[in-house]
Amino acid sequence: MKKITRKKHLEMKIQSILPHPKPKVELEQYSTPSIIASDLLWNALSLGDIEDKNILDLGCGSGIFAIGSALLGAKSAIGIDIDEDSINLALENASNMKAENIDFISEDVLGLENNFDADTIFQNPPFGSQKKADKGMDLKFVKKAHDLSPDVLYSFHMASTEDFLINYFDELSFEITHIFRYSFPIPKIYDFHTKESRDVNVIVIRSTL
C-alpha cells in the first residue's frame, strides 16, 4: 500500500468508502463526510498524531478514520463498533482500499478494557439526541477514551455544548490544544427527517493527557 502524501488525494480516496446501507436510528449512525474526515486527518497528520502511531477509532462505523489513518502511514489502526453490520462494512472498505495493519472489532466501546496501546484516538460518538436514556453518550465516550490513556484524543461534539465540554475535559485532566469547527450535513436517512438535508455545527476537540 502506497502512503498518501497529499490532502486532496486522501479526500478522493476516502470518498469511495461505502456508507452504512441501513443506518440504525437508535445508534445515531451518520457517515462522516469525506471532506470533513480528510481535513481532520490531515490536521492530525500535520500535528504528528498519525504517522507511525497506533490509532484507535471508537464507534468506527464504516471505518473512515481507521482506514484514513492507515492510508497516511499509521503503525496500526483498530476500529471498534457495537454494530456488527458496521464492522463487516468497515472490513469490506479496508479490503477495497488495500489498507494494511488494520483491524476491526465488534464490541461495546463503553465496556472496553485498557488493553490497547493507543497513541491517538478518533471518535465521532452518538450524542444521545434520539433516546433520553442515551443523553450525554458523547461524554461517556470521552470518559472511556480517558480510561484508555491515549496520548491524543480527537472527539466530535455538538458545537452548542462547547463551554460545558471545556469544563468536562478539564475535570478529566485533558489539556485542550485545538478546536476544529465544521458544518456537518445530516442527510434525510431516517423516517422522522422532514428535510432532505440540514447542517449541524459540530466541533472536534483535540486534547492530550
Rank of each mutant, 00 (worst) to 15 (best):
153 L>T: 01
130 Q>N: 13
156 F>W: 10
75 K>I: 06
90 A>F: 05
81 D>G: 08
87 I>H: 05
77 A>K: 01
184 F>E: 06
88 N>F: 09
110 L>D: 04
75 K>M: 08
174 F>Y: 14
116 F>Y: 15
74 A>W: 02
110 L>T: 10
55 I>H: 00
110 L>S: 08
68 G>S: 11
57 D>A: 08
125 P>N: 08
89 L>H: 11
136 G>V: 04
149 S>E: 15
98 K>L: 09
130 Q>M: 14
156 F>M: 15
183 S>H: 13
57 D>W: 06
92 E>W: 05
137 M>K: 12
128 G>F: 08
96 N>T: 13
100 E>H: 05
184 F>A: 13
128 G>K: 12
172 L>F: 05
119 D>Y: 12
105 I>A: 07
113 E>F: 11
74 A>R: 03
114 N>G: 12
138 D>E: 14
117 D>C: 13
131 K>G: 01
104 F>T: 05
145 A>R: 01
104 F>E: 01
136 G>H: 12
167 N>W: 02
83 D>Q: 10
185 P>L: 03
157 H>I: 03
58 L>W: 04
72 L>H: 05
168 Y>S: 01
167 N>Y: 06
86 S>L: 15
95 S>I: 12
162 E>F: 10
164 F>Q: 09
164 F>I: 13
67 I>D: 01
71 L>F: 11
97 M>S: 14
105 I>T: 07
72 L>W: 10
136 G>W: 08
95 S>D: 13
190 Y>T: 07
76 S>M: 05
86 S>D: 04
105 I>Y: 07
93 N>Y: 09
102 I>G: 01
134 D>P: 01
87 I>N: 02
188 K>R: 15
67 I>S: 02
65 F>T: 06
97 M>W: 05
173 S>E: 15
191 D>S: 15
153 L>H: 01
175 E>A: 07
60 C>F: 10
163 D>L: 12
106 S>F: 02
64 I>W: 08
77 A>N: 06
115 N>R: 14
77 A>R: 02
136 G>E: 10
100 E>Q: 11
124 N>L: 11
59 G>A: 09
142 V>Y: 00
131 K>W: 07
136 G>L: 11
102 I>T: 02
129 S>W: 12
167 N>F: 04
69 S>E: 03
159 A>S: 15
74 A>Y: 01
99 A>D: 02
55 I>N: 00
135 K>V: 13
180 F>N: 09
64 I>F: 08
118 A>C: 14
